[in-house]
Design a protein around this nucleic acid. Structure first.
Length: 803
DNA sequence: CAGCCATATCTTTTT
DNA sequence: GATATGGCTG
């Protein structure tokens, strides 16, 4: 062999050894640095690891691995030395590697885009631990599509007509604005539901169709002509409010880059490397954005799994990934098919299900794990029996000591299914958490407080102004507001501007006083921002001086939860300030608009978790329950009736569901199910039938109601006889968590029903019920002053009431 | 202008 | 069956 080849082989050998923790395909993905690269990463194949290691590799060594550059004066001796080096330890080899650096990339030239904040956070934190120097990892651009675009818009937003401090509108704001516009255009929302209009507009946004193009493109269609009208007004309205909705954030960024050569050149020259995660979920706009950003160097790497594309209904275009190698000529395609998560049985089942799809790149996952059990299939009478079965199985496993509550996840097709299960769990006393679409921020009181803050931050924000101008009641009614809105439209200025000069308009004469008062309030808050007040103190001022807090206090018992929620919101503000040095109101609002509840899901609490299969994507659990595996539920009836493409998407969802499980999977279906007030009799899901019988263990229904009694160790009853006391229902007793640790262990004393206790803030109260929740205890306490509350022993800091 | 009762709606939703 | 919205009345 020639000297040159020996040198390159020896060099690559050293890198291979240094990255021996990865398998061959993973390593090749890491080392392939230049040009377009598609990594088809199956579920549980170490996708994030590859992504992070590759970014770190590029920054450390550039394209050292495949580079054919030779050192000056290459001779026999130095090659032999290099060949010998492979016998050294990994640590020693790593010392040698820097000598191969070729065209390394500065951290700020690296862009990594994900879909969720959670994924972005994961990448950021893993990168932070990959580099000793914090300044390296923090200068890498890693964020969601939306946060990356926001960053670009903050720099160049004025080019597309946005002022500093622009606002993000969420789906609710959009809905309000659209239905408002429809009213003003006299379009009946019975004939044209707001939802369908929004979805048409959103689809247009995703396909980068502006309202003008939309108008001409659909000129022949009456309905679409109307939509075009609404679309146009909506866009004008967003602009005049200095606001963008989620789709706009991406679309406007693209227009900005398309129409402004300097901005475009700045970014395409800046980002030498672009990485995109979950590429199968990109829509046309996102595809276009990555294409533009990567157009300078075309070093674009996308990671994804066509089999896990489950967001078509949101505009995700699976052809982006299927045709990646056609879009980018010379693209290299690497498949990661080794799964490090699930047992063989689980993978075989998943492979069999997904093999029924035709439009796919084709992958077959394999694993080294041979310790698995068959898939447990169980038929229950109805949804309540289904819930009880799940509870029994969890109790059994936890009682045997092998599992904690947090090892279990219940994944369902629709949120509605969680109800019956939740009810049963609430009774059982098993600690659980439900992740539903409803975000904490969607609660009215939070949205109201946010609206105040948003209006202060951006005075043009008419939507938020309308939301809170009469909340608390300031005697500013609809008529006054309509007048203000009309004048604002005529003068093409913001509603706030009109309100602050209300005395100048005869139409507003009657309410001029109250309107001016409101403007003064907002001005006062704006003035506060210029002082060195902390964000927390500022937010408290807003809540107090606006009268919002008083309104809730006056509201009595029903509004108690809302006050608590507002306190929780404030702790979010405190949290933000402590995380972001020099954090501003604008910064807080932006983060708030772009962060969802699922991002905050932490897996530390010992509780069973319930969520939709969609939300579970990217997560893994030792034991997974899939209730409601019935034709009509999953796949849903609408998808059964629709085209093959819909069914394939549904099947991919089933594939995602099954591949969440590490060790055990339970598939449950019922004979009869009550859903939406109707009893249905659904056959078992066709996806279950796609799993070969030899992988399935059909679990017979037991006749006895108290099946779990035989698993409940006697010690449980004798150790804590008190727990059953408040319940007469047998099944409740039976379903108590087994081996629930007495709270005493944590240095807390246990109270019983009827005890009188003292709480730090709520004062004197009487214990109504005592429920063990895993390692903690839930008390329901009737307080003298603040009514009945449910509190966890760990947090409540209760004392025996004395005197 | 605010509270109350009738009515419609019910996949999935990373931002 | 449960919940959010809207129209109507006080």
């Amino acid at each position: 062999m020639e000297l040159k080849e020996r040198y390159l082989a020896a060099k690559r050998r050293l890198f291979d050894i240094a990255y021996a923790g990865l398998n061959d395909m993973q390593r090749e993905s890491v080392f392939t640095v230049k040009g377009p690269l598609l990594v088809l990463a199956g579920a549980g194949s170490g996708k994030t690891t590859v992504l992070v290691k590759r970014i770190a590799f590029i920054i450390k060594y550039g394209d050292a691995y495949f580079s054919e550059k030779l050192p000056h004066g290459l001779d026999e001796d130095s090659v032999v030395k290099l060949e010998e080096a492979s016998k050294l330890s990994r640590g020693e080899i790593e010392q040698i590697l820097p000598e191969f650096i070729n065209e390394p990339c500065a951290p700020w030239q690296m862009l990594a885009i994900t879909f969720t904040n959670k994924a972005a956070g994961e990448i950021k934190s893993r990168l932070a631990s990959a580099f000793d120097d914090e300044s390296i990892s923090s200068s890498i651009w890693a964020g969601t599509f939306h946060s990356v675009c926001m960053r670009i818009l903050r720099k160049y937003g004025d080019r597309v007509g946005y002022e500093a401090g622009f606002t993000v509108y969420d789906t609710e704001d959009t809905k309000k604005a659209i239905s408002d516009i429809m009213k003003s255009l006299n379009i009946d929302d019975k004939v044209m539901p707001v939802k369908s209009v929004i979805s048409s507009i959103s689809k247009a946004n995703e396909r980068l169709i502006t309202c003008d193009t939309f108008e001409t493109e659909y000129a022949g269609d009456y309905r679409m002509r109307k939509v075009a009208q609404i679309y146009k007004r909506y866009q004008e309205r967003l602009k005049s409010c200095n606001a963008l909705d989620y789709d706009d954030i991406i679309m406007q960024t693209i227009f900005l880059l398309r129409d402004n050569e300097d901005a475009r050149d700045y970014y395409r020259n800046k980002f030498r490397y672009v990485c995109v995660d979950e590429y199968q979920d990109t829509n046309l706009a996102q595809f276009e954005l990555t294409r533009i950003l990567a157009s300078g160097y075309e070093n674009i790497m996308v990671v994804g799994d066509d089999d896990q594309s489950i967001y078509k209904f949101r505009g995700a275009d699976i052809t982006n990934i299927l045709e990646f190698d056609r879009t980018y000529k010379n693209a290299k395609v690497i498949r990661l098919e080794q799964n490090y998560r699930s047992t063989k049985q689980i993978l075989d089942a998943a492979n069999m299900i997904i093999s029924h799809n035709t439009s796919r790149k084709g992958k077959t996952l394999f694993t080294d794990r041979t310790d698995g059990e068959k898939i447990k299939l169980r038929c229950c009478e109805d949804q309540n029996a289904e819930a009880r079965y799940i509870i029994d199985e969890i109790n059994k496993a936890v009682a045997s000591g092998s599992r904690g509550f947090k090892d279990f996840a219940i994944l369902y097709r629709t949120n509605a299914q969680s109800q019956a299960i939740e009810r049963a769990f609430a009774k059982s006393g098993i600690p659980y958490r439900v992740l539903c679409g409803q975000r904490f921020n969607d609660r009215k009181e939070i949205k109201d407080v946010l609206a105040y803050l948003q209006l202060i931050n951006n005075h043009k924000d008419n939507e938020r102004l309308k939301r809170i101008i009469n909340e608390p009641k300031r005697k500013i009614g609809k008529q006054t507001l309509d007048a203000v809105e009309q004048i604002a439209a005529e003068q093409s200025c913001s509603m706030y501007e009109i309100i602050s000069q209300a005395d100048k308009y005869t139409a507003l004469k009657r309410s001029a006083g109250t309107l001016l008062g409101f403007a003064e309030l907002i001005d006062y808050f704006s003035g506060l921002l210029d002082t060195d007040i902390t964000l927390e103190a500022f937010v408290r001022q807003v809540i107090d001086r606006s009268g919002y807090r008083q309104m809730l206090i006056d509201g009595g018992d029903e509004e108690k939860d809302r006050l608590d929620n507002i306190e929780e919101f404030i702790s979010g503000v405190i949290d933000y300030s402590s995380r972001e040095e020099g954090g501003t109101l604008g910064g807080f609002l932006e983060e708030n608009a772009l962060v969802s509840e699922v991002d905050k899901y932490d897996d530390t609490a010992d509780a069973v978790v319930m969520m939709t299969i969609h939300s579970a994507k990217g997560l893994e659990f030792p034991i997974v329950f899939l209730p409601g595996m019935e034709d009509g539920i999953f796949p849903g009836m609408q998808n059964i009736l629709a085209s093959d493409a819909e069914m394939e998407e549904e099947r991919r969802l089933a594939y995602v569901a099954v591949t969440r499980a590490k060790d055990v999977i339970y598939i449950v279906h019922t004979q009869r199910r009550m859903l939406y007030g109707r009893t249905t009799y659904n056959p078992i899901s066709r996806f279950v039938k796609e799993i070969p019988e030899e992988l399935i263990d059909t679990v017979e229904e037991r006749r006895s109601v108290s099946t779990s009694a035989e698993y409940a160790p006697k010690t449980y009853f004798s150790a804590s006889p008190r727990f059953g006391a408040g319940f007469s229902e047998e099944k409740v007793t039976v379903n108590k968590p087994l081996f629930a640790k007495p709270a005493q262990e944590a240095g807390k004393r246990i109270f019983k029903e009827g005890d009188i206790v003292a709480h730090m803030t709520f004062g004197r109260g009487e214990i109504l019920t005592v429920k063990p929740m895993g390692a903690d205890t839930l008390y329901e306490i009737a307080f003298d002053k603040v009514g009945t509350k449910k509190l966890m022993a760990t947090y409540a800091k209760l004392k025996k009431y004395e005197g």
